[in-house]
Design a binder for these strands. Structure first.
Length: 443
RNA sequence: GUGAGCGUAGCUCAGCUGGUAGAGCAUCGGUCUGUGGCACCGAGGGUCGCGGGUUCAAACCCCGUCGCUCACCCCA
């Protein structure tokens, strides 16, 4: 009598179950291989940090920091672990679950003096992030990202281009086709404030034609008006001044050279002057990748340059660029496209018949497992028909049949379930055969 | 934070103008004591999200509440 579940996953969190976990592991493993082929190395970071780290880097006025973080106080030293009692300390350190990974990476870079390393520092990080938003398709309160960052003294456009190349190569590798890469430059500390002010003035002239959200943004963040989805605002937005016409000489040249670099590398992109990003720290290059099959939340990757962020956090003058890929969304899009990889499952189901064969079955199962074969062996005797039926339902590639005949002749009968091809093999032949099969299919 | 839609078996869903619940798939068993996918037979599994109201009678109507989903905001 199953009872109603007493506990359920917290809103916005979810369980990822087999066989989906195989897809996730493959996705993340592919990322590691591609990123490391570009000489990125993994950094593992804490899942919570001082709240102020995020406030300063992401921007205390952003929605992420002002209303979407999971924030709590650590108990101070005078308290015991707070397993009981609601009286949480007001004096403890205020910390937050990370809403993104770049801030932590910068903190680690500064804390461990990574600027002392030779060349550019190239790091990637895989793990969960937390934002207290209302869940919807492709959006969770605990979600997963792949992050990559390049930090160093240089802001050469080739660095930006390499990051974008890696991104494109990765998406191609995981079968995430039908994506669009959007590219823009949003200027730097010199030219952007002037443009934002110009934009604000222009927006004020047409204020009464805008919706309430956009009217509010004129004061809070004029750039955000540019990516409004309201159809009645599109005509007005199209006439607004564009940042590409107001970049300073340095930013203009950087953007032009980046586009040359992308051409050299054969990267296809779409320039989008309305692409603005939500985090305060971005400068110059910004980009975003959108994918199909995702509903309204269709951005699978966002990133850009953030020169000056390390300094803002108390580190040495440093240039930086990076991106975040939303794994939940990327994997959802791959699933919706049906373009799924064939992932290894159960290789062999051992169908043994009668107690006298059990010892032989156990012995060969162990040997097969030692050679990397996935084996299922029922611990209780069952009818032979039922064994094969179960082997089939479990999706086994082979049934290994062991009865009194096989034990008497020291052989095994291997049956391929897909086409019922069946052969008698010695132990040596069996191991050889399955190992070569495994190599051939390249799991 | 705002708005809309939906909550009936493990899953997908029926259930007419109110008369105290069904199907398919899945699971388990049998037909079937060394050859699976098929077929047939059978079994288990639901206080119809929860609480209240109307009624002789509520899965169905009304109110509330919780949950899920999608969208807005914002973002990966």
């Amino acid at each position: 009598m199953p009872e109603k579940p007493q506990f359920r996953a917290i809103k916005g969190t979810r369980d990822i179950l087999p066989p989906d976990t195989a897809l996730w592991n493959w996705f993340e493993h592919t990322a590691r291989e591609i990123f490391e082929s570009y000489n990125f190395r993994e950094i593992r970071l804490p899942i919570f940090e001082q709240t102020d780290l995020f406030a300063r880097s992401v921007g205390s006025d952003t929605d992420i920091v002002s209303k979407e973080m999971f924030t709590f106080r650590l108990p101070d030293g005078s308290e015991r672990l707070a397993t009981e009692g609601a009286s949480s300390s007001q004096t403890g350190e205020q910390v937050s679950l990370r809403p993104e990974a770049t801030a932590s990476t910068m903190r680690a870079y500064i804390e461990h003096n990574l600027q002392a390393l030779p060349g550019n520092v190239k790091l990637y990080c895989i793990g969960p992030m937390f934002r207290r938003e209302r869940p919807q398709k492709g959006r969770y309160r605990q979600f997963y990202q792949l992050n990559a960052e390049i930090l160093g003294q240089s802001d050469a456009p080739a660095i930006d281009a390499e990051v974008l190349e890696m991104l494109v190569v990765f998406f191609k590798h995981v079968g995430l086709t039908r994506t669009t890469l959007y590219l823009n430059s949003i200027g730097d500390k010199n030219c952007r404030p002037q443009y934002v002010e110009l934009l604000r003035q222009e927006l004020l002239k047409v204020k009464d034609q805008l919706g309430p959200d956009s009217q509010r943004r004129i004061e809070t963040n004029p750039l955000r008006v540019l990516d409004s989805k309201l159809s009645q605002e599109q005509e007005i937005i199209a006439k607004l001044p564009r940042i590409s016409d107001h970049l300073c000489a340095g930013c203009r040249e950087h953007f032009a050279r980046l586009k040359d670099e992308l051409k050299l590398r054969g990267i296809v992109y779409e320039e989008n002057w309305r692409l603005v990003r939500g985090l305060d720290y971005y400068t110059r290059t910004t980009f975003e990748v959108i994918a199909e099959g995702l509903g309204s939340q269709n951005a699978v990757c966002g990133g850009g340059r953030y020169d000056g962020l390390v300094e803002l956090l108390g580190g040495p003058p440093t240039k930086g660029i990076g991106f975040a890929i939303g794994s939940d969304r990327a994997i959802l899009s791959i699933q919706e496209s049906g373009n799924l990889p064939v992932l290894p499952g159960l290789d062999v189901f051992v169908a043994w018949m009668g107690e006298p064969t059990y010892a032989a079955a156990l012995a060969i199962a162990r040997k097969l497992r030692e050679s990397g074969v996935s084996v299922e062996l029922p611990g209780e005797e069952m009818k032979f028909k039922k064994s094969l039926n179960l082997a089939d339902k479990l999706g086994a590639r082979y049934a290994l049949i062991i009865g009194s005949d096989e034990v008497a002749s020291c052989t095994f009968t291997l049956k391929r379930l897909a086409d019922a091809d069946q052969r008698k093999l010695s132990e040596y032949e069996l191991l050889e055969y399955l190992e070569s099969e495994k190599r051939g299919t390249r799991g």
